[in-house]
């Protein structure tokens, strides 16, 4: 009973936050609504005993991705007014499509049932069950290769993001280490021999 109450509560928050994401005029509000979405999703995942992923969601999404979003939103000087033009013109289409998609998905779930009993709850897990252990075992055994690929993907993403945003400004003074190391004494100091001039 408690679980049901929690589910409905957080589901409602999630949907409302989702609506907030899409209708906010201000990108900062939208980003914050999205953070709320992730947080409530994490709670819901905890409710169905997917603890590790719930935590990862909070750490990675809320902690990293959304912070990045907020950074960007604030870095860019966005003309919000201009972006809002035509907002309402296609809104009805968006809502219509939303309604159709929801109706259809629910219809498919109810009618076809995907070959499963959708009215069934999950089997409760034993008390000593560790979601992290299970997931870790799967990741580093069967999916080890995929994990490595994902790691490479992240590396590529890092390099891509850096190289995309890297900007060489003109007139910037930079150290050239190799030139500094390769320098010779004769480049810097010249000894000149000259006759002493008589004191006048």
């Amino acid at each position: 009973m408690l679980v049901a109450v929690l589910f409905y509560t957080f589901a409602t928050i999630l949907v409302v936050a989702g609506v907030g994401v899409i209708i906010s005029r201000n990108p900062v509000h939208a980003a914050l609504s999205l953070v709320l979405c992730f947080l409530t999703s994490a709670v819901l995942w905890l409710l169905i005993e997917a603890e590790f992923l719930a935590l990862v969601l909070v750490l990675v999404y809320v902690g990293a991705v959304m912070v990045l979003f907020l950074f960007v939103v604030m870095m860019l000087d966005i003309n919000v007014e201009e972006l809002k033009r035509g907002f309402t013109r296609y809104a009805w289409l968006g809502w219509l499509v939303t309604a159709i998609v929801v109706a259809e998905i629910v219809g498919v779930i109810v009618q076809r049932r995907l070959g499963l009993d959708v009215t069934r709850g999950a089997v409760p897990l034993p008390a000593d069950y560790s979601n992290a252990t299970e997931l870790g075992t799967a990741l580093f055994t069967r999916y080890a290769y995929a994990v490595e690929l994902a790691a490479v993907l992240l590396l590529v993403a890092i390099i891509a993001a850096i190289s995309l945003t890297l900007r060489r400004r003109r007139g910037l003074k930079l150290q050239d280490i190799s030139a500094q190391v390769a320098v010779r004494a004769s480049d810097r100091v010249r000894l000149v021999k000259m006759k002493a001039e008589p004191r006048s």
Binding site: V15, V19, A99
Partner: peptide, 10 residues
């Protein structure tokens, strides 16, 4: 499904 539809609408 609702979340998905919302994002599509978005």
């Amino acid at each position: 499904a609702v979340l998905f539809a919302l994002s599509v609408a978005g």
